[in-house]
Design a binder for these strands. Structure first.
Length: 457
RNA sequence: UCCCCAUUAGCUCAGUCGGUAGAGCAGGUGACUGUUAAUCACCUUGUCCGUGGUUCGAGUCCGCGAUGGGGAGCCA
């Protein structure tokens, strides 16, 4: 039986069997206590082992990390610290953990735990984190499923070289030695796909094609960027959520983003309470209050132009100067969401020069229908836009930005027949987890992170 | 990729003015009928990241390199 179920539904006096890993073994002369954890919940269960057990001596000497199963009777605990405890009738040891087990009964640094990423799921923090990650993943599918969105699996291997969202990882079966020797460039027509291919940097373009058939769709899958970014917010492999809605404008897009974000805040507070309390106590004292506030607040909307005015009026000094036309830096975003809005804030209608080719041009001729959702402590967490559905304007924009239209002929085809207004946004899954847990490094919210020079495990 | 910081026991860290290193935890032995990262007593543990230099002498100062972290850029 899973320990979580025992603690939630177990009745005093019942016989139960649990299996897990010892977090702590405390031995007195006549009694040994084992804190047993099976990953189903943060707390684990206290096992009481008495000297009448035939293997009491061996059990009393077990090390932290040992795997064992325990059959016994559930009783009310006479001591404070837990409601129930399990009085062992039999203890079966699968394997003792020797003293060289890298996880000790003490606090370890996140840096050290990263170096033993194969073992860190057995710690409190990473247990709570990966339970929350799993829950959140399912909640995202539920959110869209309940609203009739189609889940689409966009390709991971792509031939698009010009999505404009970062460096591509090459995918090839050509001999690396021959590649470097190729005179006058590599002949990709001889490659596996008969063309140059790479790992996807976004499923958006394919997502749009499905939105123009199914109406409301979303993707939730892995994404790859070969940027040499060494920061706590970047990974070479991460997961992204990208909904897309046909017959929707920017306002509808922002409304969906708000509903989505508040839904997820509410769900983790309600259903990951124990783990959220752990994060609040150990990582970020203001966490649950902040998430709760977001879950219950109507988000504000501000024009980019007004945001610039607000920033120019600000009494605080910014490292990066502000004027109409510049992109907002994290320091600007945080000022707007923390000082001006004091809560989540959409900034909409950005200058077209600083945004992607597919964003819909506004009538003023100098802005596009883009939106960023800014949240306190982080800055931008969601970026989206209404897409340019007018074929001629889209092609003009691609030419202006140096993107060869012929490479995206199929994308442009979607604007040839039955084009319609549509909009969508993207949310980095790991950044969402960081926001919801207070974890400050993306390498600590992915099971086995891939970053420059790191592909271990 | 650029800038800054760090690297000392299995882990977390201290190490003064340049004089061959020491705390806690872990581990070992013992004590304790109920502990909560148990407690108490005693004991063990070192390529001071590597490399070159300065010096009578370098964990400590200087150069180069490696690794890690933070900031910036890019972005999700």
């Amino acid at each position: 039986m899973r320990i979580r179920r025992v603690l939630e539904q177990g009745s005093v006096g019942s016989d139960v069997t649990v299996a897990g890993w010892a977090r702590s073994v405390r031995s007195g002369k006549g009694v040994t206590f084992i804190a047993l954890n099976d990953g189903s919940c943060l707390g684990g269960i206290q096992i009481v082992v008495g000297p009448e057990l035939h293997n009491f001596e061996a059990v009393a000497r077990l090390g932290t990390g040992s795997s064992l199963s325990v059959a016994g009777k559930l009783v009310e605990s006479p001591a404070v610290g837990q409601r129930f405890e399990l009085v062992a009738a039999t203890v079966t040891v699968y394997q003792d953990a020797t003293p060289d087990y890298p996880l000790q009964k003490k606090r370890h640094s996140f840096e050290y735990l990263r170096s033993i990423a194969h073992l860190r799921p057995r710690t409190n923090t990473f247990g709570a984190l990966f339970r929350l990650r799993s829950f959140l993943s399912q909640a995202i599918h539920q959110f869209f499923g309940e609203r009739g969105f189609l889940c689409v699996h966009t390709p991971i291997i792509t031939g698009n070289d010009c999505e404009g969202a970062g460096e591509l990882f090459r995918v090839t079966t050509l001999d690396p030695a021959a590649l470097s020797r190729a005179p006058g460039g590599v002949d990709y027509s001889a490659d596996f796909f008969g063309r140059a291919t790479g790992l996807t940097v976004s499923g958006q373009l394919e997502g749009e094609l499905f939105a123009l058939a199914f109406g409301d769709i979303y993707t939730f899958g892995p994404t790859f960027r070969a940027e040499n970014s060494n920061t706590p917010r970047h990974a070479a492999e991460f997961w992204m959520i990208e909904p897309e809605m046909a017959f929707a404008d920017l306002a509808a897009d922002a409304a969906l983003a708000e509903e989505f974000f508040r839904y997820l805040c509410r769900r983790v507070l309600e259903e990951c309470a124990e783990d959220m309390e752990f994060f609040t106590a150990h990582l970020d004292r203001g966490l649950m209050e902040r998430i709760g506030k977001v879950a219950g607040t109507k988000f504000q909307i501000m024009e980019y132009g007004d945001a610039i005015v607000q920033l120019q009026r600000a009494k605080v000094p910014f490292v990066y100067p502000v004027k109409w036309g510049v992109d907002l830096q994290t320091e600007h975003e945080r000022y707007l969401t923390e000082q001006v809005a004091d809560g989540p804030l959409f900034v909409v209608n950005y200058p077209r020069e600083i945004k992607a080719f597919y964003m819909r041009g506004n009538d003023d001729g100098r802005t596009v229908a883009a939106m960023d959702l800014l949240v306190p402590k982080v800055g931008e967490i969601i970026g989206g836009s209404q897409r340019e559905e007018r074929s001629d304007l889209l092609q003009c924009r691609m030419v202006e930005m140096g993107i060869p239209p012929e490479g995206l002929w199929w994308y442009l085809d979607s604007r040839r027949w039955g084009s319609c207004p549509h909009a969508g946004f993207g949310l980095g899954f790991e950044r969402l987890i960081m926001y919801l847990t207070g974890m400050e490094n993306i390498r600590d919210v992915i099971p086995f992170p891939r970053t420059p020079r790191h592909a271990e495990f």
